[in-house]
């Protein structure tokens, strides 16, 4: 029984990890593009990006998943895009928006003096960004990124609204089918383990960047 449940859980856990990784892979770079948009000097791009970020951050992720899954079929009459792809698209867009705001906060927190110091030393804009600004931004965004990424682990459970059998859905199904409660606590351990590993990882990175202040 325990073994059987464990195997089922592992299947769900695999999907959870998959959603988590693909979301990160997509949202980390997409977030940067959105950041550039929201900091653009061109007013139209800036306004559109900001409105988009506001909508995405201002509505539940669950709603966005449902919309991406059912939307194309109902609105355009097309066939829709499958459960897992819909989940991934919604997650990537949603998290990219959150990340973009963290990036923006990080970039804007660097004093103008750092750019100017680079400029008077004859550095190019690219050199200034990559040799001076970037490392400082990374240091500053690591703590909020850690929080956001841990939230992502737990948010993966939202995938079940379109019947993706991730970890929580897997447990829920067993609980309903076999009328036992302990799998719910069991998966709690999975989540704790996952977030625990991430907490330690981010702690390590923070420590590594702790050799300077500022």
């Amino acid at each position: 029984m325990f073994l059987e449940v464990t195997l089922q859980m592992l299947d769900g856990f695999k999907l959870t990890v998959f959603i988590f990784l693909v979301t990160l892979l997509g949202a980390l770079p997409l977030g940067l593009i959105i950041t550039f948009g929201s900091m653009s000097k061109i007013k139209v791009i800036k306004s559109i990006t900001k409105a988009f970020v506001w909508v995405i951050r201002g509505t539940p992720l669950m709603l966005q998943i449902i919309l991406v899954f059912y939307g194309p079929g109902l609105i355009l009459g097309s066939k829709g895009i499958g459960r897992l792809p819909a989940v991934l698209v919604a997650f990537i867009i949603n998290y990219a928006c959150y990340f973009s705001e963290i990036y923006r906060g990080g970039i804007e927190s660097i004093s103008q003096g750092q750019y100017e110091a680079g400029q008077v030393l004859g550095m190019t804009k690219t050199q200034i960004f990559f040799k001076i600004i970037l490392a400082q931004v990374i240091k500053r965004i690591i703590p909020p990124m850690g929080n956001e990424i841990i939230t992502l682990v737990k948010d993966t459970s939202l995938a079940r609204v379109v019947s993706c059998v991730e970890l929580l859905k897997a447990a829920q199904d067993i609980v309903g089918l076999k009328a036992i409660i302990w799998p719910i606590f069991y998966i709690g351990a999975f989540y704790l383990l996952f977030t625990g590993v991430l907490t330690i990882l981010f702690g390590k990175i923070e420590k590594k960047l702790d050799y300077y202040k500022g």
Partner: peptide, 23 residues
């Protein structure tokens, strides 16, 4: 931008707030 950079090199500037690179 490129000419601007070379021209800037004629001058050095020490800021009120130092602006050293912390990393």
């Amino acid at each position: 931008e490129k000419n601007l950079r070379t021209k800037r090199l004629h001058f050095g500037l020490v800021f009120q707030q130092f602006n050293l690179f912390p990393q």
